[in-house]
């Protein structure tokens, strides 16, 4: 669904801009309206519907993607801000990394899950965060209405444990 001209001051001017960014490792070039949300570009223009919309106002985290390695709410990010950056979405995630989360009951309906996974993997990639924060604090930006969070928190902790075990194994 492409936004049209006419939303801006001069209806005769085409305000669209072309941007390029890296999406899940591949180069993307696309013309976007300056007010178009990254979430909509991903879902409706590029067909990556794994990223979900839960609230459209930065509260629920269902739309979490990474930009340059940091989890962000893609409903709050104008697509133009992705220019020249590296965007990673749930579609790029290796399903094998999700095993501990599946086994701990981290997902029920699944609507929050893509966002939960993007935050969870970010925690796993930066275990030093746990020196200053708890998993519960770090996950607080992702609302889940089904699990009550125990399954998510345990899954993250078990995945951390598994990562440590692999690291400890002699090469």
């Amino acid at each position: 669904m492409s936004p049209e001209r006419g939303s801006y001051a001069d209806p005769a001017v085409d305000y669209h801009v072309e941007i390029a960014f890296t999406l899940n490792g591949a180069e993307v070039r696309i013309r976007v309206d300056p007010a178009e949300r990254l979430l909509d570009v991903l879902r409706y223009r590029l067909g990556l519907t794994g990223t979900k919309e839960g609230c459209a106002e930065g509260e629920c985290g269902a739309c979490t993607v990474w930009i340059d390695g940091l989890p962000v709410d893609s409903c709050l990010v104008p697509a133009v801000q992705a220019r020249g950056r590296e965007v990673v979405t749930i579609e790029a995630v290796d399903p094998m990394r999700l095993r501990p989360l599946l086994e701990s009951g981290a997902t029920q309906c699944g609507a929050c899950t893509p966002g939960v996974v993007m935050t969870a993997l970010w925690i796993l990639d930066h275990p030093d965060l746990l020196e200053t924060h708890t998993v519960r604090e770090l996950m607080a930006g992702n609302l889940c209405r089904c699990t009550g969070y125990d399954g998510i928190v345990e899954g993250v902790l078990e995945a951390l444990e598994a990562t440590r075990d692999t690291e400890r194994e002699p090469a």
């Binding site: 998993v135 604090e137 996950m139 607080a140 992702n142 609302l143 969070y149």
Partner: peptide, 17 residues
């Protein structure tokens, strides 16, 4: 009628059940 001011629990608002 917004998640900004209708507050539901986050992971940090509840203990392990």
């Amino acid at each position: 009628a917004q998640l900004t001011n209708y507050i539901i629990p986050t992971s940090d608002d509840v203990p392990p059940i």
